[in-house]
Structure formats: C-alpha cells, structure tokens
Design a binder for these strands. Sequence first.
DNA 1: CTAGTATTGATAATGATTATCAATAACACT
DNA 2: AGTGTTATTGATAATCATTATCAATACTAG
Lengths: 150, 150
Amino acid sequence: MQEKYCSWEEKLKSSGGRLTTPRKIIFYILSSTPKHLSAEDIYFIIHKKNPKVGLTTIYRTLDVLVKIGFLNKFDFGDGHSRYELIEAPNKQHHHHLICRKCSKILDYTDFIEEEIKLVKATEKALSRKYKFEIKDHVFQFYGVCDKCKK
Amino acid sequence: MQEKYCSWEEKLKSSGGRLTTPRKIIFYILSSTPKHLSAEDIYFIIHKKNPKVGLTTIYRTLDVLVKIGFLNKFDFGDGHSRYELIEAPNKQHHHHLICRKCSKILDYTDFIEEEIKLVKATEKALSRKYKFEIKDHVFQFYGVCDKCKK
DNA sequence: CTAGTATTGATAATGATTATCAATAACACT
DNA sequence: AGTGTTATTGATAATCATTATCAATACTAG
Ligand SMILES: [Mn+2]
Ligand SMILES: [Mn+2]
Ligand SMILES: [Zn+2]
Ligand SMILES: [Zn+2]
C-alpha cells in the first residue's frame, strides 16, 4: 500500500510519455517561480530563449503535468487558467487570497493545521454519506487587497 | 450600521436599475431550481415560453444579479460558468462536491458550524496580516461520485 | 542504427462570453 | 394617461482562450 515517491520524469515515462525538450523547459519554468502562471505567461517566458516552442505544446504539457499529478490548475476568475506545481522547493500546501480588483494572488498558510483537521473530518464524513471519493479540494478567499483599497 | 434587508427588486431599483420582464423571468427560474444553471441552461428553459428573450440578455441579467449580491457565480471546471441564488427558500450557506468524471455537483452543509469558525478566524487573521479585506470564500471538494466509481 | 510511435508546431476551428447599436420599454414627472 | 429621458433589449458580429487537425519530427526500445 506504500506509494513510491517518484519524480515527474519517472511518472511521465512510466505512463508511456516521453521526456522531451519542451516538457523539460516548461517544468523548469514552473519550478523556478512562486507565481501562478498562465499558458500565455509561460509562452512569453519560453519565447525569449526558445522561439520554436509553440503555445499548443504548452497547453498540452500543462495537461500532462496535471494528469500525472504534479501540477495544480486554478481558475481565479480572470479568464486564464493558472498553474502551480504541487511539489516544489519552498512550497507547501496552501490556499489563496484573490483580489477582485487587480487579480493579485496571495498564498497563505495560516490556519493550515486547523484546516487540515477540518478537511480530514469533512472528507471522511462526505465519503461515507454521499459515497463520494474525495481526491482534493480548493479553498479560496476573495476580497480587496491593500493597494486596491486606495 | 445596521444593513436593511431588501429584496432583489428593491436593491436593483435603488442602484438605478429597471425591473424588466426578462429579469423577472430569469430570477424566477433561478429561484425555482436547486440546480446550478449555466447561461445556456437558462436560455433553453426560457425559450419554451418566451422565445424572444435573447442569450445576451441572460448573460447581462446574471451579471447584474451577481453585482447586487443576490447571485453566486461558480466555475466547476466544465467550461460553463454556473449560477446559484444566494438567498432562496430551502437554501443555506453550503459548499460543493464536484465529480471530476460526470461533473455532477452536490451541495453539502456538513461541518458548516466548524467551518464557519475556521473561516471567521482565518478572515480575521488574514485581514490583519495581509491588509486584505475579505468579502467571501469558495470551498470545493473534487473527486469521483458514486456512479462514476462503477 | 532503425522502426515504431508519441510529440510537436503551424494552422484552422471551436465555443463561451462581450461589444455594438438601432429599436424598445421602464418609469419619473406632468 | 401621455411624454421625455434613458436603461435595456436582442440580433449580430467580434473576441479570445482553448482544442482539433495533420504532416513533419524526435524519443526510445531493441
Ligand atoms: Mn499558490
Ligand atoms: Mn450549491
Ligand atoms: Zn488588488
Ligand atoms: Zn460522477
């Protein structure tokens, strides 16, 4: 029952995928930023050094990374899907504060302990009651950031 | 400092809006269902009895209702924004379970007491720490529903 | 090195949501 | 009830993020 931890490269290959140059670049970009990048964000970053990589490939690679469980896909309501690696240096389980005016996104980890307790209990109860197998959750707070309050 | 409760009609008018036939129909449809309707869902429902009402009007009305604070807009990841009245008969503050396979959405109210406590504490702490004025929140659990487990 | 096939990238297509704008309908005021 | 002002409507076209297509390319097992 013990899952073996493995790198995204291993997971990719073990699922029949190939380790290609665009995929390595895209993963590297994702692992080098604390931001929540959109496909287009990544496209512009890549384009400076690797103008050949197309936007389509970026969308496809993001899908792959989400599918093998190394990437989270978020909708913060600004019209672009945004992505963030699940496991990364200096990154732990966290949630988001989103400014409704400027779309700034803030990671926070306050109350994560309490939250995890609540989530565990909720997952257990909901699984039993609704026969729903819960895989993950998204908590987001919306409001107005410091600067946008004027 | 006491907010006066008022109906959506009052709120609409007090903000300079007009109480029109399409708006009344759309509100009525929203208040008569426990489902989470998309603009297109509403369009098809309306179309049977009022074929004149256009899809554009539906999008605009939904925006208005969100803006005056009577309607929640959700993204459950199926490519359509979905809407649910905030105040409605037989409806209380709740969150959602979403099936990743069939997109079924389930309202749940379990642990709402504990959750409200956590939310209150979180809001207070985050407001102080990040100078972020929190207006609302979205909690969602994702997984696989009973039927989709086969 | 080679065969087999997953992946790429240029391009076109899709589809939900928005913008435009002339025609219409609320409504405040007689 | 009638009128003038102006918010709203609805038909239509436009936008724009994301997907589908498909021939060319590049991984990788053997
Ligand atoms: Mn984050
Ligand atoms: Mn609901
Ligand atoms: Zn802001
Ligand atoms: Zn399901």
